[in-house]
Amino acid sequence: MIQYIIRRFLYAIPLLIGVNILTFVLFFVVNSPDDMARMQLGQKRVTEQAISNWKQQHGYNIPLLWNSEAQDQEKVTKTIFYQKSVGLFLFNFGVSDSGRNIGADIQERMWPSLALALPTLVVGLVVDVSFALMMVLFRNSYIERTGLVICVVLLSISSLFYIIGGQFLFAKVLKWVPISGYDDGFSAFKFLILPVLIGVFSGSGSGVRWYRTLFLEEVEKDYVRTARAKGLTETQVLFKHVLPNALIPILTGVVVILPLLFMGSLIMESFFSIPGLGSYTLDAINSQDFAIVRSMVFLGSVLYVFGLLLTDISYTLVDPRVRLS
């Protein structure tokens, strides 16, 4: 097991290097260090001197990939790519192009992201699973058919409509919640309730349908027929046999996305001005702050790899037949 995990970690390294090269190439094709300096220095009274100062300060005054002037191995190490990448692998994200330390910002903004994403996930899971169960319980009846139609309708509506509509109705017209904002601690509740509900609602269409198919697959299996033959009622069958067994794919599906919850939701956070990592990323894209975007890409990939690992492990935990090798 431990050996397996170590192997997976080693496997992650070329992956992360690949990710890093890709983002690096993509962004530097677009932006030369000069551009970045100009972007950050503003448009009033910018001189060449100021630009070269900025580049030196942010470590952009060396060649991108190959330093032909340096000695031996410094030809590789004394480049922007090497210098910046090494920092990332050590989780030392450095300073953003606009001058703030990225690591400190990420640490701080992680929690609001989580405060929004985790309840959305949990509540969404509970709601989706219970509705899916209900539909399976009442299968081949008008309840299931209406339910399915509602699901298709729900998932045919762009999430932007839910957000715009929800914010308009509950915050502006009914004044039940603040229209946007965030606070630490328990005061966060009133800010989060609306985005969480909208998140749950907009995801429920596809969620319910997906869990329904999982349950239906399980319902058709032989052991369920046996249970039914034993004389258990349909409700008992569902809760005692189908639900526990169907939980395995559900939970492993959840485990994959757990680490990525830290990354936050781009749109939800910016609509409700929640100071999480999602809005952090979005701001960075808009202001073309390459250092932040690069760090977030890296962080995202690390979390993704971590999620994959978690899934594998959780498989072995819930299903003893699976062995990691």
């Binding site: 603040p178 904002g181 001005s273 809005s279």
Partner: peptide, 15 residues
């Protein structure tokens, strides 16, 4: 307060 979007900003002002 940090307020990026104009809609919440304006609404909060009116409130």
């Amino acid at each position: 307060m940090l307020e990026k979007e104009t809609i919440p900003y304006w609404t909060k002002f009116l409130q």
